[in-house]
Design a protein around this nucleic acid. Structure first.
Lengths: 124, 124
DNA sequence: ATAAAAATAGGAATTATTACTACTTTTATT
DNA sequence: AATAAAAGTAGTAATAATTCCTATTTTTAT
C-alpha cells in the first residue's frame, strides 16, 4: 500500500470519532476537509484499511456498515431506544467459547449486545 | 396478520433450508413454486415474519440480510474459507456477559464466531 | 530522471431494499 | 351466502449503499 494523502485524511477523520460512523457519515466529515475526495476513493480506502487490519468494519448495527478505528479486541452494545453504540472492553466481559470444541478453529468472535442503556432506562 | 398463501409458501420454503439464505437465494426457490410471487411480496412478508417473531433476521454475515427459521436462541459460526454458516446451540457455548454490569439492560446478544471449519482445516 | 505500480476523481453501473398503486383476497358480520 | 372493511398482492418505480470503470495523476524504487 503506497502512501496517499486521501487515505490519510480518511483515517485521521475516522480517528476523530468516538462513535462508529457509517461510510456516509464519514463522507460528510471527509468532504469538509477536502471537497475533491470522491465516494469511490472513500469506499476503496475503507476496504483497504479494513483488509490491512488498520481499522475494523462492524456489520449488524443497522443496514449499513460502520467503521471503527479502535482495533484492539472489543465488543459493542447497541441501545434499542436511542441507537447509540457503546464499546464494551474485552476485560469487561466473559468471552463466549464453544464447549468441547474440536470442530471449529475460532479466529475471531463478534458480539453485539442489544438492550436498553442506563440513560434510556432512567428516562422511563 | 391475515392468512396469505404467498406468505405460507415463503415460510415453508425457508423451513426447507438448513443453512440461512439471503432474500435473493430464497426468492429463487420461492419463484420455482409460484412464478407470480414478486420481490416486493417476499421482502414485505419476510419483514412481517421477523416482526412477529416467527423467523429471525441475521445481519453481519455479509453485506445482505439472511433469514433463519430456527427461532430458538442460538448463534453462528462462519467459516472464512468456505463461507458456510453453522448453527451453534446455546447449550454448547459459554454465553458472554458484561461483568459488574449495572449500566446496560441486555435483552439479546448476537454472536458470530469466525474461523476455519473442520472440513476446511482437513483439506490443508 | 524515469518507468512501473498504485491511487485518484467522477460518474456509470449494480445490488439490495423499500415505496407506490390499482387490483384481489381474506375475514368478520350479518 | 352477501358484503364491506382490512389486509395482502403483483409489478414496477424509486432509493440507498456500494462497486466498477477509465483516463489521469501520484508515489516509489531504481
Amino acid at each position: 500500500m503506497n502512501y496517499s494523502r486521501q487515505r490519510q485524511i480518511i483515517l485521521n477523520t475516522l480517528k476523530e470519532y468516538t462513535v462508529h460512523p457509517s461510510a456516509e457519515q464519514l463522507y460528510i466529515k471527509v468532504h469538509e476537509k477536502d471537497k475533491n475526495i470522491s465516494k469511490g476513493t472513500l469506499y476503496r480506502n475503507l476496504n483497504q484499511l479494513v483488509d490491512s487490519g488498520m481499522i475494523k468494519k462492524i456489520d449488524g448495527l443497522d443496514t449499513t456498515a460502520h467503521f471503527d478505528h479502535n482495533t484492539h479486541e472489543h465488543y459493542h452494545f447497541i441501545c434499542t431506544k436511542c441507537n447509540k453504540i457503546y464499546d464494551i472492553e474485552k476485560e469487561d466481559i466473559i468471552i463466549p467459547t464453544i464447549k468441547n470444541n474440536n470442530e471449529f478453529l475460532i479466529i475471531s468472535s463478534d458480539i453485539i449486545f442489544k438492550g436498553i442503556c442506563k440513560e434510556c432506562k432512567e428516562k422511563d
